[in-house]
């Protein structure tokens, strides 16, 4: 995994996903991954995947089972432990057939499932990169790996493609190398919307800050603190409990003087705008209902 950052487009129907895949193919945009809640037939053809060789592996394991069963039984019955059963031949092929068959199936099945798990990276305790929690429910996702060197024009193209194909949501998801699964949920999800601003959006944090002059920043901070009031940093709540706020974002809020749920709950329209301008994430407070969440967390 070269990069930890993905542009993710979410669709609400498999047909739209396939449209998007075709559009990407046409525009020569490389798709990193396609994630669906169930197997979408024909998708692998669209993505140009080769046939899986799992069946070949299954055959090899199966034939190994056949060979092991026949040779071990033959060796035991004719050499290691030749038992006279009613004068019948020691090498009694017909009565070796049932066990040979069973072991063929057993070897093939066990071997194939092992290969399947290894190739798919499946094992108990695996930490998956969950791009969106609704992918296992009703969302069909396309992901595109990006990094700091990805040209803005490419990102713009991807976003435009996704939106054009009818994506219900387009976002950036970032993972940290040492994070466990639980942090994934609250990780950095910056929005690329609106799409005409797309190329800049990926670098939104930096750029938005640059655009604001120092006086403006000070004014906004003042508006914000007037609305939410100031508290002592010692009485700090774990803002990460609000769905949508990650460790990075929490730190940024703390820098602005927001430490508690009660402060978040008090965000007025103006204060909300100030927060979003200062942090560079437009529309999130409302969309993820931070205020509602904060009120709920306060009343716990």
């Amino acid at each position: 995994m070269a990069s930890n950052k993905y542009i993710v487009g979410l669709f609400d129907h498999e047909d739209r996903l396939i449209d998007a895949v075709r559009a990407c193919k046409k525009e020569n945009v490389e798709i990193t991954d396609t994630l669906t809640p169930f197997p979408v037939h024909g998708l692998e053809h669209e993505l140009g995947y080769d046939d899986t060789r799992l069946h070949t592996a299954g055959f090899m394991f199966g034939i190994t089972g056949t060979f092991v069963a026949l040779s071990v039984m033959t060796w035991i019955s004719t050499s290691s432990y030749p038992l006279n059963i009613g004068g019948k031949p020691h090498f009694a092929l017909p009565s070796f057939i049932p066990i040979t068959f069973e072991l063929t199936v057993l070897f093939a099945a066990v071997g194939m499932v092992c290969v399947y798990c290894i190739r798919n990276g499946l094992f108990p305790g695996a930490v998956p990169r969950i791009l969106d929690e609704r992918i296992t429910d009703d969302r069909f996702a396309l992901s595109f790996e990006i990094d700091d060197h990805t040209p803005a024009s490419k990102m713009e193209k991807i976003v435009a493609l996704l939106k054009g194909a009818g994506a219900v949501d387009v976002k950036v998801k970032e993972f940290e190398d040492d994070m466990d699964m639980f942090e994934v949920e609250t990780s950095e999800v910056s929005d690329l919307l609106p799409s005409n601003q797309a190329p800049k959006a990926a670098n939104a944090k930096a750029e938005t800050k640059k655009v604001l002059s120092d006086e403006e920043v000070a004014a906004k901070k003042l508006t914000l603190l007037n609305a939410v009031g100031t508290v002592d940093a010692g009485s700090k709540d774990d803002l990460k409990e609000i769905k949508g706020i990650g460790p990075v974002y929490e730190e940024r809020l703390n820098e602005l003087g927001i430490f508690t749920f009660s402060q978040v709950a008090k965000l007025t329209v103006e204060a909300r705008e100030a927060v979003e301008d200062l942090t560079g994430f437009p529309g999130r407070v409302e969309r993820e209902d931070w205020i509602g969440q904060a009120k709920e967390l306060m009343n716990r």
Partner: peptide, 18 residues
């Protein structure tokens, strides 16, 4: 229990084959 399943097209392709 899910063995870290994510539902990529590759996973599903192998799933169907399996």
């Amino acid at each position: 229990l899910s063995f870290g399943w994510t539902g990529t097209a590759r996973q599903w392709q192998r799933f169907e084959s399996l």
